[in-house]
């Protein structure tokens, strides 16, 4: 169980598949698909770092928020349909959460660097959550593809930025979203995404990417490109195409944007020349 392939691939994917299948078969009326992402993330966290909360470090704050996100998502799904105001409220809450996570570190930096890093983190997390809630929450295949692209993109970019641990966490989110997507592709039926999925997937992947920027060496401009990954999952696909084909196409769109971010992290780690 110490093998990274198990920790970051098999274990989170199995956890996500189990949760997604339970939701699909037993809890169809509820929008609980997002629990698959959280289950995958926490599974990898358990194997890689352990689930402890003291001292409350940046990483552990992200775990705390990963537990809170589906709860808030469930409440949001019950409270209101995806609207601009609802999306804006969740986006602002995400930005505030990002500042809460990183404030102890940002407060030690000089003002200019703190503004740049804190601003990039807040903007990226807010945009991912807001866009996801506004445009993807009612489209489970698009939401799943966005989660898959964001998770894998954040994971690979983190590894390239000197943090394999954050890389594993990101890939776990991708595996969770992949499990959510795979159940839909195999069954040929969509699950419900809702805020439970988009808030969980976007918040966790956004915070991991921001952590890779602030604690490791992910460039801020690569973070902003990663934040655009959900936009790829909004691009048009043939409406009457089989669900699996839509999922593949949307995932490819997401991967292209994620790939661009990874290329920036790889080739221009110290700034874009010019």
């Amino acid at each position: 169980m110490s093998n990274p392939v198990f920790q970051v691939g098999v274990a989170p994917l199995v956890a996500a598949l189990v949760v997604a299948l339970v939701v699909a078969l037993l809890l169809r009326s509820l929008q609980l698909g997002g629990l698959a992402v959280v289950a995958a993330f926490l599974t990898t966290m358990y194997f890689v770092s352990g689930l402890t909360f003291s001292p409350l470090t940046v990483t552990r704050k992200i775990v705390v928020l990963s537990l809170a996100a589906p709860v808030v998502g469930i409440l949001a799904d019950f409270a209101f349909k995806p609207t601009r105001i609802g999306a804006a409220v969740l986006a602002l809450a995400g930005a505030a959460a990002a500042l809460w996570v990183f404030w102890p570190v940002l407060s030690q930096k000089d003002a200019a660097e703190a503004w740049l890093l804190g601003g990039a983190a807040a903007v990226a997390v807010a945009f991912m959550i807001g866009f996801g809630q506004m445009f993807l929450a009612e489209h489970a295949v698009r939401a799943g593809s966005a989660g898959l692209g964001a998770g894998l993109g954040v994971g690979i970019a983190s590894i390239l930025s000197a943090s394999a641990t954050y890389g594993l966490y990101g890939i776990a989110v991708g595996a969770g979203a992949g499990g959510f997507l795979l159940v839909q592709m195999i069954r040929g039926k969509t699950l419900a995404a809702g805020a439970t999925f988009t808030l969980s997937a976007m918040l966790i992947s956004g915070l991991i990417a921001a952590g890779a920027m602030i604690l490791a060496m992910l460039p801020w401009y690569a973070l902003l490109v990663l934040a655009l990954v959900p936009v790829g999952a909004r691009l048009p696909v043939p409406e009457k195409a089989p669900l699996w084909l839509q999922a593949v196409l949307l995932s490819i769109y997401s991967f292209i944007i994620a790939g661009a971010a990874c290329a920036l992290a790889w080739k221009f780690p110290d700034g874009i020349p010019g």
């Binding site: 390239l160 000197a162 943090s163 604690l215």
Partner: peptide, 21 residues
């Protein structure tokens, strides 16, 4: 390589020097 070993050791995988200077 994208990062040196020293850069990796300073990151969150090991000494996490930004959070724990």
């Amino acid at each position: 390589r994208p990062r040196t070993r020293d850069e990796h050791l300073r990151g969150p995988d090991f000494f996490n020097v930004v959070e724990f200077p």
